[in-house]
């Protein structure tokens, strides 16, 4: 595991919703330009943990964390870190495709526009680039100014990925990105993840064991807010050292 650089790491992280302790003493490191998968039963804290990595939980009343999360060695919960800057660095894709009720073009360039970039040529170039990266360009190039809501679910999700890529993040967080999609669209997204890891560090939460096996390099198993086991995906799936991991992977619960 040490052969690659560490991009993101959590050290003794605890997280609370009010009095409820959702994450218990998580310590984990995620490799640069690799795919790390979080698995575990519903409510195990894997999504909560993912959302602490770009501070998406900041707006939830009563949510707080203890411990450190380091991005390139810097604590992202530090007072001097601006959360909007952090999210430009750490992009996110959600469970259900959530395109804005605007045109395809407006969706892709939204992140750039709110940074104040107005140059039309520049925006168009960026839009084409990220749509090509997500293999969506050929499908949508003639309807850039049509509503994004008219796309199919799989296309919408790839649009959401393109939207995240447009602001050039180095990390992409994916929260069960295929759970709302059909098998064919799912396959396309998985292929895409495989491509993207050449340039990006990817962290993916998934319910789908096979998916974790297919796309990830490393896998972390969460249970009841604790990190039970973390290692090479192959190792976790073939010879897990913990009984609970074994039981979960073989489908005895979850």
């Amino acid at each position: 595991m040490a052969k690659n650089n560490i991009k993101l790491e959590a050290k003794n992280l605890n997280a609370y919703y009010g009095d409820f302790k959702a994450l218990k003493d998580i310590t984990i490191s995620m490799e640069e330009k690799a795919v790390t998968a979080f698995i575990g039963p519903s409510g195990c804290g894997k999504s909560t943990f993912l959302r602490t990595l770009n501070r998406m939980n900041d707006y939830i009343d009563g949510f707080r964390t203890e411990g450190d999360i380091l991005l390139d060695g810097k604590d992202i919960y530090d007072k001097n870190i601006r959360v909007d800057e952090l999210r430009k660095e750490v992009g996110m894709v959600f469970q259900k495709p959530n395109p804005f009720p605007k045109t395809i073009f407006e969706n892709v360039v939204y992140g750039l526009k709110i940074q104040g970039i107005k140059n039309k040529a520049h925006l168009e170039e960026a839009a084409e680039k990220s749509l090509r990266q997500t293999a969506l360009w050929e499908e949508v190039k003639d309807k850039m100014h049509k509503s994004a809501l008219a796309l199919s679910g799989g296309q919408q999700q790839r649009l959401c990925i393109a939207r995240a890529l447009a602001i050039s993040p180095s990390v992409i967080l994916m929260d069960e990105p295929t759970s709302a999609l059909d098998p064919i669209s799912t396959a396309k997204i998985e292929e895409l993840i495989y491509e993207l890891k050449n340039d990006y560090t990817i962290v993916i939460v998934t319910h789908n064991m096979q998916q974790a096996g297919r796309v990830s390099d490393n896998t972390a198993f969460f249970y009841m807010g604790e990190l039970i086991e973390f290692g090479k995906t192959k190792t976790i799936f073939t010879s897990p050292s913990n009984d609970r991991t074994q039981n979960y992977i073989t489908g005895r619960f979850g």
Partner: peptide
């Protein structure tokens, strides 16, 4: 829907 807000925040938009 909240997912629209999440999408916007995730792209670095302020409140």
């Amino acid at each position: 829907p909240g997912s629209i807000r999440d999408g916007s925040y995730a792209l670095g938009a302020s409140k």
